[in-house]
């Protein structure tokens, strides 16, 4: 589904990603862990199409498309979803209006008709219930005045409504208390299916107690330096990132 090959990316001549390789197949849940500044969020932003980065080398294939050539909205329409680390507040645009615009734009991309208001309301109500979101939130402006936890729940709610093929969760656990974390994880787990893949980007192992990954990758200084099963996350939690760095140093 997603193949990242030798991806190099820079910001203002500073190289952040230094050759990332990663393959994700349908049905799999991958976790990327790493210390601050390792390039985790850069990778997420590049996948979603943020234009602040210069790709200097490498390629990304998503379902047969050259992902890096697509506009952000085309990536979304093809089934890529990024849950933002810092969801943006948009005063003046209601959640409902925003979501309907998103759904209809995606439908248009696939040559389909607009969703009917009735179908839309049914869909939105069902998914809001899943995320334990008060439906009054739907008529409020996008993320405006939401608490940190509400914003993250809103991200997963949007994901549930938009039904992507590949979901990238960028530090979705940051700023969440344990109850909110469980709700978010439950939302993500409900959406697990053989057709869908998930990439969880996180600093801490905590989220992975609830969203259990098939594969864990450790990103250090712009490269994936170690990959393994879910037990790797536990090891990292126990020993910290230093043990990886020491391993690397020993090899060098």
């Amino acid at each position: 589904m997603l193949t990242i090959s030798n991806l190099h990316a820079s910001v203002e001549d500073k190289e952040i990603l230094k050759g990332v390789n990663l393959t994700i197949n349908p049905g799999e849940v991958h976790a990327i862990m790493g210390p601050n500044g390792s390039g985790k969020s850069t990778l997420a932003s590049i996948l979603a199409g943020k234009s602040d980065y210069e790709i200097t080398e490498g390629s990304v294939d998503f379902l047969g498309h050259d992902l890096l050539e697509l506009d952000p909205e085309e990536r979304a329409a093809e089934g890529l979803f990024l849950a933002f680390q810092y969801p943006v507040e948009i005063p003046g645009v209601t959640n409902t209006y925003f979501l309907r615009s998103a759904i209809n734009s995606i439908r248009k991309h696939h040559g389909e008709d607009d969703i009917t208001p009735k179908e839309f309301m049914a869909l939105v109500k069902e998914k809001a219930a899943l995320m334990e979101l008060d439906s009054s939130m739907l008529s409020r402006s996008v993320n405006e005045g939401f608490s940190g936890g509400e914003k993250k729940r809103n991200e997963i709610f949007q994901m549930a409504v938009l039904d992507p093929k590949l979901a990238v969760l960028d530090e979705t656990d940051s700023g969440l208390d344990i109850d909110a974390l469980k709700i978010v994880a439950n939302g993500v787990n409900t959406l697990r299916s053989p057709e869908r893949a998930t990439l969880v980007i996180t600093h801490y192992q905590r989220l992975l107690d609830y969203i259990v990954p098939d594969f864990v990758h450790v990103l250090v200084d712009g490269r994936i330096v170690k990959s393994g099963g879910k037990e790797l996350a536990l090891e990292l939690e126990e020993k910290g990132y230093d043990f990886i760095k020491e391993e690397l140093a020993a090899k060098a």
Binding site: E73, R75, V88, A102
Partner: peptide, 30 residues
């Protein structure tokens, strides 16, 4: 940042721009 957020959800660029223009003034009407 708002434009990217909307586009990352699939909203076409021109539509996202229109939506944000609307929102800019709607914030006062709200």
């Amino acid at each position: 940042d708002a434009l990217f957020y909307l586009r990352a959800r699939g909203v076409e660029k021109s539509k996202a721009q229109a939506l944000l223009v609307y929102a800019f003034a709607a914030e006062v009407l709200e």
